[in-house]
Write a protein that binds this DNA or RNA. Structure first.
Length: 287
DNA sequence: TACCAGGTAAAAA
DNA sequence: TTTTTACATGGT
């Protein structure tokens, strides 16, 4: 077991409930359990929050685990480099945002285990409802995922690149999306696309690279910057879900345009995407 | 039953 | 160059 200290306020239970509020599942888990690959070895990482700002992290099914690697993946899963305090300082002086952050103190968006998985998530969620995309992803996982410690982990780029278009379509992807997934997986294993190297670049550079991927438009690039790369200001302004939710807070329930959405979130720069997430979770949990 | 859902690339005009 | 179209599944 490994203990990790977190910077600033963080409430894991609340963050899990926030994440679950977007999915068609009955109840949020209280332990963050993710099947992953650590240095090529399958493992299940279980993160729970001890009193105060400590996590306990366990990795099963590996006899010897490199502590640094485990720490690295954990930091990514819980976005631990993000300190919420500067965002809260901006939020509490805003009459609409103040009650939202005070009822959701410690909420953080949780990240998927890998950027590759996040990229596939972005593709599956294009245009479809989150519920539909959720079921499609689950079919991808049960069809192509490898088992580690009794849990299925998200299929690797190698597996998805080798899958046939028919198999991918059979999971519920359109023919076009099946092509996107296969091509993206191929360029990852060929090294033409290196998400880990991208992570260290500047935000605008990452965005440009993402837009060059076939199947990635503005929405997917910003969504991935926000949810995968953990850039708190990145904001998919064309997002229908956000436009509707923000409409409840800023426009008497009328859906906002992309430009209006940006304008309403301008006071929270450089945390506009995070502010949008707080409003979306607040709306879904109706706290 | 339709219709819309946290879009995009490619065809058509 | 700009506009229109096809497309997957799930919930209402």
């Amino acid at each position: 077991m490994l203990l990790i200290r977190v910077r600033g306020p963080f409430n894991l239970r609340l963050s899990l409930a926030g994440a679950a509020s977007f999915l068609p599942i009955a109840r949020a888990p209280d332990v963050f359990r993710v099947a992953v690959d650590i240095d090529g070895m399958p493992a299940v990482v279980s993160i729970s929050q001890a009193p105060r700002q400590l996590f306990s992290v366990r990795a099963s099914s590996i006899p010897e685990i490199d502590e640094a690697s485990l720490k690295k993946i954990t930091k990514r899963l819980v976005w631990s480099d993000l300190d919420l305090q500067p965002f809260y300082r901006l939020a509490i002086v805003n009459p609409i945002m103040r009650p939202v952050v005070s009822s959701l103190t410690g909420l953080k968006p949780l990240c998927p285990a890998t950027l590759f998985e996040m990229a596939i998530i972005a593709i599956t969620e294009q245009q479809l409802s989150l519920a539909a995309a959720f079921h499609i992803r689950n079919r991808l996982i049960s069809r192509f995922g490898a088992r580690s410690g009794g849990q299925l982990r998200f299929p690797s780029a190698e597996i998805l690149a080798a899958a046939s278009l028919e198999e991918l379509q059979h999971c519920g992807l359109s023919h076009r999306k099946a092509e996107y997934v296969k091509e993206l997986a191929s360029s990852v294993i060929q090294g033409a696309l290196d998400f880990d190297a991208l992570e260290r670049k500047r935000e605008d550079h990452i965005r440009e690279e993402l837009l060059a991927i076939r199947g990635f438009g503005e929405w997917s690039a910003d969504y991935m910057l926000s949810r995968g790369f953990g850039r708190p200001d990145a904001l998919p302004a064309g997002d229908v879900g956000l436009q509707r939710v923000l409409g409840h807070y800023f426009a008497h329930g009328r859906r906002l345009t992309a430009a209006q959405l940006k304008r309403k979130l301008a006071p929270f720069k450089p945390f506009r995407g995070l502010a949008a997430y707080y409003l979306a979770v607040h709306w879904r949990l109706r706290r």
